Amino acid sequence: MKYRHFKKMPKAYLTYPAILKGAFSSKKLITKTLTLPQVTYVVAEHLVSPKRLVQYNQVCGFKNNGYIPAIYFAMQAQTLHMYMMTQEDFPLAVLSLVHEKNQVIQYQKIIANQSYKITCQFGEVIQTKEGVSVEFISKVYDKEALMAKIKSTYFQACSKNLSNQRQCLTPELEIQAQWRVVQSTTRRYACISGDFNVVHLHDWGAKFFGLDRAIAHGMWTQANIMARLNLPEQYDFNVSFLHPLYLGSDVALSLCDQNIKLLDQHTDLIYVSGCLK
């Protein structure tokens, strides 16, 4: 295992040239067994900007209560994912991947205005006839104490159509909250997160990748749900991104036996589902 150390969180936009270059490279889904680099990225002393945290809480719906939501670090870990996919010997093209699943485990409340160590490394590679799933495992430490663990899973389909063919059920659940996903929120989140993927910002960009129109960030959607729940100090929050959430959609949040269902009222399909422990 090799280590790459950062004094501070790197800038996401510096990976964009490599990501675009990868779109025109020979990288593609291959049939042989894929292996991922044995590397760990480490940001030794990361202090979350108070101003940035307030902006994040506002756009996602969290309270400014002196704590950092664990999913905030999941958002920041995505920058490390981008570096690992572009700076290491990563076998897949970044733009071919979709965010499939996200797990956020918080072991204790994370106090704001102090530094934390963040590590990130590759997890498992899961190959099926439908495609390949790649895991990234990120951890947040206060000195030696593990505060949070995040597992993000990205998927590359063998066929462009497979990722949109997942079957969803629509149970009759009591609606807890309703809201509309608007473009201004998506653009504010992009500025905070550094995720300026065109599928989230412009209809033409989304159509280029086979979508009907621009979609919300999955990480914003998950954070927005978590902010609406009375989560305990310790939790294990899982989501699966099953269907694109288009900008302009009206959505409804329902809860049943601690299973979370987010329904897009335009399509009546479950977008994400999760489970609390």
Score class of each variant (00 low, 15 high):
Val272Glu: 01
Lys109Gly: 02
Leu263Ser: 12
Leu276His: 12
Asn102Lys: 09
Tyr41Val: 07
Ile126Thr: 15
Met85Ala: 07
Val104Gly: 01
Val98His: 05
Tyr72Pro: 00
Glu135Asn: 13
Gln38Cys: 14
Pro91Glu: 03
Leu245His: 07
Glu124Tyr: 12
Glu172Asp: 11
Trp204Tyr: 15
Thr33Gln: 14
Gly66Glu: 11
Thr185Met: 00
Gln38Pro: 12
Lys151Thr: 13
Gln78Thr: 08
Gln165Val: 04
Ser163Ile: 12
Ile68Gly: 04
Asn113Ala: 05
His200Pro: 03
Cys120Arg: 12
Lys149Asn: 07
Pro171Phe: 07
Arg188Pro: 10
Gln156Gly: 06
Ser193Cys: 01
Lys139Pro: 10
Ala93Arg: 12
Gln167Trp: 06
Pro91Ala: 00
Ala18Cys: 11
Ser133Val: 09
Asn161Pro: 00
Gln234Trp: 03
Val251Ile: 03
Met82Asn: 09
Phe237Pro: 02
Lys207Gly: 03
Arg4Gly: 08
Asn197Gln: 06
Asn113Met: 01
Asp212Gln: 15
Met1Gln: 13
His200Trp: 00
Ser184Trp: 07
Ile30Ala: 14
Gln76Glu: 11
Leu14Glu: 00
Ala145Asn: 13
Leu36Gly: 10
Ile30Leu: 14
Leu92Arg: 01
Lys149Tyr: 01
Asp212Leu: 11
Ser26Thr: 13
Pro17Leu: 01
Ile270Pro: 10
Gln114Ser: 05
Val48Lys: 04
Ser138Thr: 09
Tyr141Phe: 06
Asn164Pro: 00
Leu47Gln: 04
Ile215Lys: 07
